[in-house]
Amino acid sequence: MFRLNPEQLVFVTERHLATLTTLRPDGSPHVVPVAFTWDAEEGVARITTNRTSYKARHAVPLPDGGAPRAALCQVNGPRWITLEGTIAVSEDEAEIAGAVARYARRYRPLEPNPERVVLRITVDRVMASTYMAS
C-alpha cells in the first residue's frame, strides 16, 4: 500500500479537481476532469462515475487479463501531484456508498444514481512538486 507524506495528504483532501488519464483501446490517452477521494488506509483513489462512461470502459481488464493503468493529476498553483496505478471498476454497493460519503465530505452530496460505479485506482507511484517531495 502506498502512503502519502503529510503535505501530499493535505493536498489530496483539499477541495480541488483533477484530471484522470486512461488509455483508449488504440493506446491514445483519454483525459477528463474528475473529482476524486483519497483513502489513506488503503492507498486507493476513488472516482464515482456512470457505468457506461468512457473512463469506466477504459478500466476493464486488458485482453491478456492484466489490469489497465491510470493517472490522476491535481494542480493548484505551484503544487501538483500525480497518483498513478492500476484502475478497476467496482460495482460493490458498500464501496459505492463509502465513495459517495467520502465525496460528500470533500466536495458536496451526490444525488442517488442507480448507474453509479466506482473507479478504484490502487496507487503504486506518486510524482509531486518539490513543495510536496517525499
Rank of each mutant, 00 (worst) to 15 (best):
A18E: 00
C73W: 04
M127G: 15
V10Y: 01
G77A: 15
V123Q: 00
F36D: 02
A101T: 12
G85C: 07
A104D: 09
V126Q: 08
I81E: 00
L9E: 03
V60A: 07
L62M: 14
P68M: 12
L83C: 07
Q74T: 09
E115Q: 13
S28W: 15
P109G: 07
G66R: 09
D124Q: 06
P25S: 11
F11M: 01
E115G: 04
P6D: 08
S134L: 11
R15D: 08
A99P: 12
E7K: 13
L4H: 00
G27L: 14
G65L: 03
G43W: 01
E91Q: 13
P29W: 04
P112K: 02
A133H: 03
H16S: 03
E111K: 11
T21W: 07
A40Q: 00
S134W: 13
A45D: 03
G98F: 08
E95P: 00
P25T: 02
P78Q: 15
L20C: 07
S129N: 13
R105W: 07
P33A: 14
V44N: 00
E93A: 10
P25C: 03
P29G: 08
S28M: 14
T52C: 05
V34Y: 08
R125H: 15
A71D: 08
L72Y: 04
T52R: 08
A133G: 12
